[in-house]
Simulated assay, not measured.
Amino acid sequence: MTDEPALALRQRANREEVLDAAAEAFIERGYAATSIDDVADQLGGTKGRVYHYFRTKGDLFLGVHRRALDMAIAAVTPLFDADTSATTKLHDMAEAHARLMMEESSYMRLAVQHAEMALAVEGRTPRRALLEVLALRNEYESLFETVIAEGIQLGEFRQVDAGLMAKAALGSLNWISVWYRPAGRGKTQPQAPEIAAEFAQFVVAGLVNPKRATRERKR
């Protein structure tokens, strides 16, 4: 049960529909070639419906990025907060990230592509909006860095640079966006859960402390 008023719920749902259409349009055409008309066509509505929520194309593009990061943070934070080992946390977080890369492929493919971000702050779109998105990205990465640092401290992981390894882990997970294609809008391939599990295992295996692993095998 939610305390959010019905009108606010409808407004949020309508705004998310605009973002869904924009994510599809930007993925199909790229930022520079996408117009508000293209987004309206994808939405099956008018430009006025888009402008009701976003003043510029740049605002809309950054809105897509923000929603992608909000979804990622919401998916991973409960796993980060769980009362489990660092190894389990990292595995579950990596698996959740991999699944999101496939389940919300349009959003996530845009979120991991940085080349067009600077274009979004041209004209009337304030640079502050870009900085807010970058801050969310850093917040998300820090969740992985913190868990890796915890695993190093507890002896679960090798002595490595936690920040560097967080980037390496996310880099491998984000690469899914390059080759994975969904079965259709909002659909995933049947093997998606297995792919997510394999990637999570790959991330953890690269960090496991070999001395601890040896001790575990001898038990």
Rank of each mutant, 00 (worst) to 15 (best):
E4S: 06
P5T: 08
A8R: 15
R12C: 02
A13M: 10
R15E: 05
E16Q: 10
E17A: 15
L19D: 09
F26T: 07
R29N: 10
R29P: 00
G30I: 01
T34P: 07
D38H: 04
Q42K: 14
G44R: 00
G45S: 11
T46Q: 04
T46C: 03
G48F: 07
Y51F: 13
Y53V: 10
F54Q: 08
F54R: 02
T56S: 12
K57F: 12
K57A: 06
G58Q: 06
G58M: 04
D59S: 13
F61P: 10
L62I: 10
L62T: 08
V64P: 12
H65P: 01
A68V: 02
A68G: 07
L69C: 07
M71W: 05
A75Y: 11
A75G: 07
T77E: 14
F80D: 03
F80W: 14
D81I: 06
D81A: 13
S85Q: 06
A86M: 06
A86T: 03
T88V: 11
T88A: 12
H91N: 12
A94Q: 04
E95I: 00
M101C: 12
E104D: 12
S105E: 14
S106H: 15
Q113R: 13
Q113H: 11
H114C: 07
H114T: 08
E116C: 04
M117R: 13
M117Q: 08
M117F: 15
A118V: 13
T125K: 02
R127N: 01
L131H: 12
E132L: 08
R137H: 09
R137F: 04
E139M: 02
Y140H: 11
V147C: 08
I152P: 09
L154D: 13
E156H: 06
E156G: 04
V160C: 07
V160L: 14
K167E: 07
G171M: 01
S172H: 09
S172L: 13
N174A: 10
N174I: 00
S177E: 03
W179Y: 12
Y180T: 05
P182V: 04
G184E: 04
R185W: 10
G186L: 01
P193R: 03
A197D: 05
E198T: 11
E198D: 14
A200I: 07
G206E: 03
R212Q: 14
R215F: 09
R215T: 11
E216K: 15
E216G: 08
